[in-house]
Design a protein around this nucleic acid. Structure first.
Ligand SMILES: [Mn+2]
Ligand SMILES: [Mn+2]
Ligand SMILES: [Mn+2]
Ligand SMILES: [Mn+2]
Lengths: 219, 219
DNA sequence: TAATATTTTTAGACAAATCTAAATAAATAA
DNA sequence: TTATTTATTTAGATTTGTCTAAAAATATTA
């Protein structure tokens, strides 16, 4: 059975995320995502093509093959199960789990992951609200939308945050927005895309379009 | 803070085990332990010397420095905590845990390990009966001896098995010897070093010196 | 102690994963 | 449609970790 280095796994996973379903991914995109140089991506794409993980023709971008997609989903399964474990069993906060899971995801013993899944009681979502693929690679389509897309006066629950930089988390903290927070958009300003939010019984607060685009809610 | 590659960590840990306290380790010994070639060991020892992990002069063997010993103990701490987790929480059998822990031990996030320790309720021994170093690197001296050294008519408990090859485990299984088994040596044959054992109320059984040297018991 | 055997190190090579600089292809604008 | 800009690939280098074969040091034996 084909095995992959840590670096190969990181590339495969990044392609999956950038594909957003079925879009073709470019060399520069992937280089930016992985903080590496375009020349390095070209080298790696040749290797992944040889392993039949991607479709690739020089200058034409790349896409995962069905085999590649399956591999990506298994890496994501490991990543999200570990995130859930860290959050649920070890009391890590949801902004700390990603970094550690980024390493744990590369320990690829099948029994380990299936037993962990069972131990955790087959969780369906990770601490960021992202769905966890099951042992066969099946993944739920998450019903989450960006807060910027949420209709006015509809109650929704924060389930995911795209950017998780320290700056972002600082801002969220300041606005008292966390995973699980129930909120409602009361007004949208077309001029700059900023929103006025109602959270519980607090006075209305205002957030920028940029922030709203990075917060995901489940409806 | 100094960090180490997976290969460096495996070397550091192997030196610790071969030192058996304070003995100097040779190039060939370490090469055998790690299934690698003497030339590769020499290269790595130069690197570990530069990082002040070992004392080393060409042709004179090597020993961990205090810093090296501390590093080794942290790797062993991670290894044994994961073994305990796999055995206790994921129902792995004690002969399956080592291989997986060999990978998990290289995820070196301090908070992860300390929280895991807490989650497991600060276990003092891994599933093979080996002591788990605490967060400061302190480790209990285990009172375990080889079954071949056990005095006649003294009850002891199997707590560790040195060799864990499939052949070995098959033999143990056949003799109904497992971790936690209570036993007593009833007779020692000087001719070949074989032993007669009493296990519970079963009829006496006989084991070879070779097997007895690989089974450790706590007294 | 001299000859021989063993252990360890050095020299030089290779694969993996990355980089920089230069060349080339593709896309865009004039 | 030609020129310019941008994206991608190639060429060649570097680092890490390993190897084989040969040289050198050390240990053992005669
Ligand atoms: Mn990763
Ligand atoms: Mn996540
Ligand atoms: Mn290891
Ligand atoms: Mn163990």
């Amino acid at each position: 059975m084909l095995t992959f280095s840590i670096s190969e796994e990181n590339h495969i996973k990044a392609i999956y995320h950038l594909q957003h379903g079925d879009q073709s991914v470019s060399t520069n995109q992937l280089a930016a995502e992985l903080n590496t140089k375009p020349a390095s991506i070209t080298d790696m794409m040749k290797k992944l093509k040889a392993k039949k993980i991607i479709h690739y023709e020089a200058y034409k971008g790349f896409k995962l093959t069905p085999e590649g997609r399956k591999t990506a989903l298994m890496i994501i399964r490991r990543h999200r199960l570990w995130e859930y474990f860290l959050s649920e069993k070890l009391q890590f906060s949801w902004d700390e789990v990603h970094e550690v899971a980024e390493e744990l995801e590369h320990v690829s013993n099948e029994k380990l992951i299936n037993k962990l899944d069972e131990f955790l009681d087959f969780p369906r979502f990770d601490p960021h609200g992202d769905p966890i693929p099951d042992a066969s690679g099946k993944i739920e389509i998450s019903r989450q939308i960006a807060l910027s897309e949420l209709a006015i006066n509809k109650v929704a629950v924060v389930c995911n945050v795209k950017d998780q930089s320290a700056d972002m988390l600082d801002l969220l903290n300041h606005k008292s927005i966390a995973l699980g927070t129930k909120l409602e958009v009361k007004k949208k300003f077309d001029f700059d895309g900023s929103l006025e939010l109602k959270i519980g019984k607090q006075p209305l607060i205002n957030i920028s379009r940029q922030l709203a685009e990075n917060i995901y809610v489940k409806i």
